[in-house]
Measured scan of single mutants.
Amino acid sequence: MPSETPQAEVGPTGCPHRSGPHSAKGSLEKGSPEDKEAKEPLWIRPDAPSRCTWQLGRPASESPHHHTAPAKSPKILPDILKKIGDTPMVRINKIGKKFGLKCELLAKCEFFNAGGSVKDRISLRMIEDAERDGTLKPGDTIIEPTSGNTGIGLALAAAVRGYRCIIVMPEKMSSEKVDVLRALGAEIVRTPTNARFDSPESHVGVAWRLKNEIPNSHILDQYRNASNPLAHYDTTADEILQQCDGKLDMLVASVGTGGTITGIARKLKEKCPGCRIIGVDPEGSILAEPEELNQTEQTTYEVEGIGYDFIPTVLDRTVVDKWFKSNDEEAFTFARMLIAQEGLLCGGSAGSTVAVAVKAAQELQEGQRCVVILPDSVRNYMTKFLSDRWMLQKGFLKEEDLTEKKPWWWHLRVQELGLSAPLTVLPTITCGHTIEILREKGFDQAPVVDEAGVILGMVTLGNMLSSLLAGKVQPSDQVGKVIYKQFKQIRLTDTLGRLSHILEMDHFALVV
């Protein structure tokens, strides 16, 4: 994948999101292997301009796509893939009243899908469409860049269908997702969380590099694949309309690839034109409109599966009536509230959605109805927002919020430890010299600072030695090549209790 991002070429006709291997024109390309080798690009942008032909009021008969309808489940399912879809609609009884809503608040519980998330729908649909058009064949390999849930859905379907599955996901995604993927037989590649989507090191860039190296491999490409919004247009939206008897006044959905909100909203605009569509985008993402909503100094966020630093091709923002931004604290607070007060075992993005819903639905009156999409299960986040310690460490809970008995030293300040200034190293000294210094002084790690004293990161003896043994660096290389740029900081005025929580999850903390 090139470091400079080429513009994806656009073909003359058809839909841009065809499933299957992508040609340089962004659509299915038939021909000899030699032709494909000559024409197939190194990668295709996940934010390529959409060429979708959908228009409100256009006859369904003019759609270029294969459409399906929700099917009634048999008493005995032939395999677990038949437990994807037909998820329950559940009334939220307490939270709406707590925040003064007059309307009825309903939750579409997508964590009841077989793999635990709304992404099971698009995973199965992308595979079925690729099999139907002859792209996927027995023994082929599926590769997908994902925040985890699409990966789980694909790995689940691949396990049943017999495909090899490789999932490329950023490091910030939970260990629970990784464990589930491994249990399903998927191979996992992790990428830096802070890598831009168009960087060769991003999950998108690495996935395309693997595709170019592995024979008979395919990126189904949830960011561009029409099967993504079509899955929701054909099934999720129809289920909502049936469950609500066609009567709903507002739908609120958090947005990642945009397939969920695009597919549902398009069908609702056709069948229930008075329904307002509300999009939820986390602070630090750029999906919301108008652009002024996205202006923030924050560039990272903890909530998973929603928000991006690019506009995915499948996201149709014209069908969203209003956007709201959400933050991590309210997302996790509301997710825990949904679990504790409503018994809905949902993930953090569901918290984002409901946090926005109780604001947006203030305009609705008694007798009206708001539906929220709860995308995934708490299963993926047992060591994250479900953990009091994690919430404390991230600053989303305060010590006084917890009532468990603490040891005698818990409320003492870090400054009472009488710490001395640490050994520091410059980023320009060599790895070999740094190892000598650390061994001589008896230290395992040291902060790396520039000549102005600005902290650049941390270097550890173990990481340097393993990097040297693996051949990633040489003793003569500058130590700046092996620094940890993500590390926890703590102030002298913070409590030892807070430091204790940090050290339970990290090997060190830097006192500043």
Rank of each mutant, 00 (worst) to 15 (best):
P2V: 08
P2G: 10
S3F: 11
S3L: 10
S3N: 13
E4Y: 12
Q7F: 13
E9V: 10
V10Y: 09
V10P: 07
P12C: 04
T13N: 12
G14A: 01
C15E: 11
C15V: 07
C15S: 07
P16A: 07
H17R: 06
H17I: 15
H17Y: 14
S19Q: 10
P21N: 11
P21D: 13
H22I: 06
H22K: 01
S23V: 05
S23A: 14
G26M: 10
S27D: 15
S27P: 01
E29T: 12
G31L: 01
S32W: 11
S32M: 01
P33K: 01
E34I: 01
D35N: 12
A38L: 14
K39S: 04
P41R: 06
L42P: 08
R45L: 14
R45E: 14
P46L: 04
P46Y: 03
Q55P: 01
L56F: 14
L56D: 14
G57E: 13
G57D: 10
R58H: 14
R58M: 08
P59Y: 01
S61F: 08
E62L: 09
P64Y: 01
H65K: 05
H66L: 09
H66S: 09
H66V: 10
H67A: 07
H67G: 06
T68M: 01
T68F: 11
T68A: 12
P70Y: 01
S73I: 15
P78L: 10
L81R: 04
K82F: 09
K83V: 06
T87F: 01
T87P: 11
P88Y: 06
M89N: 01
V90M: 01
R91H: 07
R91A: 01
I95G: 03
K98L: 06
K98C: 06
L101R: 01
C103G: 10
E104L: 05
A107W: 11
K108L: 03
C109K: 01
F112S: 01
N113S: 15
N113W: 06
A114G: 12
G115S: 07
S117C: 01
R121I: 05
I122N: 01
L124R: 06
E128R: 03
E128C: 07
D129R: 03
D129W: 11
D129V: 09
A130W: 04
E131Y: 08
R132L: 07
G134I: 01
T135W: 15
T135C: 05
L136I: 08
L136W: 06
K137P: 01
P138Y: 12
G139R: 11
G139I: 01
T141L: 13
T141M: 11
I142P: 05
I142E: 01
I142T: 04
I142C: 05
I142Q: 01
I143T: 09
T146S: 04
S147V: 01
N149F: 01
T150S: 05
T150P: 04
L154E: 04
A155C: 13
A155I: 04
A157S: 13
A157T: 10
A159T: 12
V160Q: 14
C165G: 12
C165F: 01
I166T: 15
I167T: 10
E171V: 14
M173P: 04
E176H: 05
E176G: 07
V178R: 15
V178G: 09
D179L: 07
R182A: 01
A183I: 04
L184R: 05
G185F: 01
G185D: 10
A186N: 05
V189P: 11
V189A: 12
R190F: 01
P192R: 10
P192G: 05
P192D: 09
A195Q: 10
R196L: 10
S199I: 05
S199F: 03
P200L: 11
P200V: 09
E201L: 08
S202C: 03
H203C: 06
W208L: 08
R209Q: 13
R209C: 08
R209L: 08
R209I: 09
L210W: 01
N212V: 09
N212P: 04
E213V: 09
N216S: 12
S217M: 01
H218A: 01
H218E: 03
H218F: 12
L220E: 01
L220N: 01
Y223M: 07
Y223Q: 15
R224A: 10
R224C: 10
S227F: 09
N228S: 06
N228L: 01
L230D: 06
L230I: 09
A231I: 09
Y233D: 01
D234P: 01
T235A: 08
D238Y: 08
I240W: 01
L241R: 10
Q242C: 14
Q243L: 11
C244V: 13
D245F: 15
L248D: 01
L248S: 01
D249W: 01
M250P: 01
L251T: 01
A253E: 08
A253P: 01
A253V: 10
V255F: 01
G256F: 03
T260A: 08
T260M: 05
I261S: 03
I261Q: 01
T262C: 08
T262V: 10
G263E: 01
G263R: 01
G263M: 01
I264V: 12
I264G: 01
A265V: 11
A265L: 04
A265T: 13
R266V: 10
E270A: 14
E270W: 06
C275V: 14
R276L: 12
R276C: 09
